[in-house]
């Protein structure tokens, strides 16, 4: 597990530039994730990595390709001070966990962290610190636990 740190206002054009929006496939998109602003990301990212960012992460377009690219790259959680709302919904609706927490200044890229989503706790094993966060509203937790909106609706219908 490694941390990928980003600043404020990371827009969806940075996450996945528009020129690659000719597929919706998560793995195919992942190859181009952050290709304009951080080309090493797609090369080095591994299953289980976590993104830690500042405010307004995912601002800009409604392209679901952005959270799909991150899921395809193996990102298991994005922690940010705040999220742009369409990205926030898209991520939850496709099953990419998000945590809203102001920890970008406390966590370094070399740190090892563990997440306890139920207790709302981020443990920094390297620095031996812990940061609490407000868990998502229950409805959104249910969406995530179902594996996204479609599976949630299917479960409701049966």
């Amino acid at each position: 597990m490694r941390i990928w740190k980003f600043g404020d206002n990371v827009d969806t054009d940075q996450i996945i530039p528009a020129e690659f929006l000719t597929t919706g496939d998560a793995k195919a998109l992942a190859v181009h994730a952050f290709s304009k602003v951080r080309p090493e990301f797609a090369v080095a990212v591994q299953e289980g990595d976590i993104i830690v960012a500042g405010s307004n992460f995912g601002c800009g377009s409604s392209r679901e390709h952005a959270p799909r690219a991150l899921l395809g790259a193996g990102i298991t959680c994005v922690i940010a001070r705040s999220f742009a709302r369409i990205f926030f919904r898209n991520a939850i609706n496709i099953g990419l966990p998000l945590i809203e927490a102001d920890v970008v200044d406390q966590i370094d890229e070399k740190d090892q962290i563990e997440l306890d989503v139920d207790r709302g706790l981020i443990e920094n094993l390297t620095k031996q610190e812990a940061y609490s966060f407000q868990p998502l509203p229950l409805f959104m937790q249910q969406l995530l636990k179902s594996g996204g909106l479609i599976k949630y609706i299917k479960a409701q219908q049966t």
Binding site: E64, I86, I94, I150, I153
Partner: peptide, 24 residues
């Protein structure tokens, strides 16, 4: 499409969503 909010100029509540939400 994120600029779906444009129709607020006519007094609608309109907002951008992702493809999965559109499908739902």
């Amino acid at each position: 499409d994120s600029h779906t909010c444009s129709y607020g100029a006519l007094g609608a509540f309109s907002t951008g969503v992702g493809s999965t939400e559109a499908a739902a």
